[in-house]
Amino acid sequence: MKILLIGEYSRLHNSLKEGLQVLGNEVTLLGFKDGFKDFPVDFPLVKKWDYGFLKKIKLAVLKLTGYDISSYLTYKQFKQNQKHFKGFDVVQLINEHSFFCDYPHEKKILDYLFKNNKKVFLLSAGDDYTYVNYNFNHPENPSIVQPYLNGKIVDNDFSNVLKFKRKSFKKLHEFIYQNIQGVMATDIDYHIPLQNHPNYLGLIPSPINLTKFPKRELKIGDRIIIFHGINRGSYYKKGNDFFEKALAIIQQKYQDKIDVFVTENVPYNDYINRYNQAHIVLDQLYGHDQGSNALEAMAKGKVVFTNASEIFENHYKLIEKVAVNALPDVDYLVVQLSNLIENPEELKNMGQRARKFIEKEHDYLKIAQHYLAIWK
């Protein structure tokens, strides 16, 4: 098959592309490189007029006229290469807002893709109209909406989520759903809001390219290493405030037994290299299922503090824990960390179970085959 993947979040489409290519398909990736993570893309898009003085001019023009210069410049980049984006058997959008444009320019790009390719599918792999509105309507559901409702995040810093509540995004959502062959969720957090939706084709777990993560046993010496990678832009969304408070207590309690490494806003390759020696990785709170960073750490046999709720465990019929379900509770996090530090054998065993779980449920070739079956 000839396949066009659009957009990139945490290496999801890169891993899927690798799996599809091994299975003999022709795959092209178009989109942004996911910010500072800088993932490889065949046709990279660059968001222009988004920093410094040019951004100030853009915002002034937007306020005075309603015209978004950045959206026009993204559309122009797409237009310059549009001959490369037609004639595909399958196009897959990673999100309802894959091009980060205003409604008129996003619609123009999508309209071209709908008219010039055989089938278009959508992923629910991040914030979108259905996911965001579901969580505002169900504030008890663990999601990134909870720290916002608790007043930890101001509107300005939550604009990438709040935008999906605007009328223009409802309009974009409806336009997309009228033209796609279906939508798939990449984990349980996005599966829950889509249940019973007529366009929903089911949950396909995120692919992990296991060839990049050779199987190895977690070696535990005199000290246990804890890694905490912080993306400052999503500090409260990921629950980093709880992790930092818990770590401060743990460092006092076990200063002779542990080393703690903390990084902020580093590119993907640097991030991976820095946590390679870790035994425990602190990932995120507020959810049911793991994202790509947690899955890759689990593939390396590490113990990850992440989303691993009872709903997740029931879905995969798990008898033993493959990750620690991280909750927004400092005392709880301290207890969980303490148990692992004091019981290194359980640390090693959970790491082994994590690896086996990834092999069974997230192998990139199995996932690529699942996508091919759905698309056909």
Rank of each mutant, 00 (worst) to 15 (best):
G239V: 02
D189P: 04
L218T: 03
D256W: 02
F36S: 00
A368I: 01
T28Q: 11
I57S: 04
Y134G: 01
G233S: 12
S168T: 14
K170G: 14
T130Q: 12
I192A: 02
T306I: 05
K237N: 13
K212S: 06
I250N: 09
Y371S: 02
L201P: 05
D157W: 08
P214N: 05
Y103C: 07
R216V: 03
H370D: 10
D155P: 08
F88P: 02
D68Y: 06
Y51H: 12
L203P: 10
N199V: 01
D34R: 00
P328C: 07
K376G: 11
T306V: 06
V183A: 08
L210N: 01
F357I: 01
K55V: 02
V120L: 14
V90W: 08
H138D: 03
H362S: 01
I176Q: 08
F32L: 07
Q92S: 10
V154C: 10
D157V: 00
N339Y: 11
Y332F: 15
Q80Y: 06
Q290I: 05
R232Q: 12
S159D: 12
P214W: 07
K356D: 08
V335L: 09
R166S: 15
K212G: 00
G151A: 08
K376L: 01
N137K: 15
M1D: 08
T28M: 10
N231D: 13
A60T: 13
G239L: 03
N117E: 05
I272K: 15
V335G: 00
Q146Y: 07
L4R: 07
N160T: 11
S309D: 09
L122D: 07
Y131M: 02
F243A: 08
I341C: 06
Y364R: 01
D155C: 03
H197A: 04
D270Q: 15
N117G: 07
H288N: 15
N349V: 01
Q195I: 14
D222H: 12
L247K: 09
K376Q: 13
R232W: 06
N141F: 15
I144N: 12
D111G: 01
K163A: 01
V262T: 15
I57A: 11
G52K: 08
R11Q: 12
D331M: 03
L172M: 14
K58D: 06
I6H: 09
K2Q: 12
Q252D: 14
I226C: 08
D270K: 14
H228F: 11
S168W: 00
N133A: 03
E296Y: 11
Q146D: 09
N240F: 06
P40I: 02
K356V: 09
I272V: 15
T263Q: 10
Y72S: 12
N14E: 04
Y75A: 14
Y72I: 11
Y371R: 02
N339S: 10
Y236I: 00
F121L: 01
K55R: 15
Y72V: 11
N135K: 06
L247A: 07
V41R: 04
F85Y: 10
L340P: 04
G87I: 05
K245W: 02
P139W: 11
D102R: 11
G151L: 08
N141S: 13
K376W: 01
G233K: 12
N116E: 14
H288P: 03
L123D: 13
D331E: 14
E313H: 06
G351I: 03
E359R: 06
K17A: 13
L12S: 13
H138N: 15
R11D: 15
V262E: 12
A248V: 03
L64D: 06
G202C: 05
Q255K: 14
I144W: 15
P147V: 02
E244N: 11
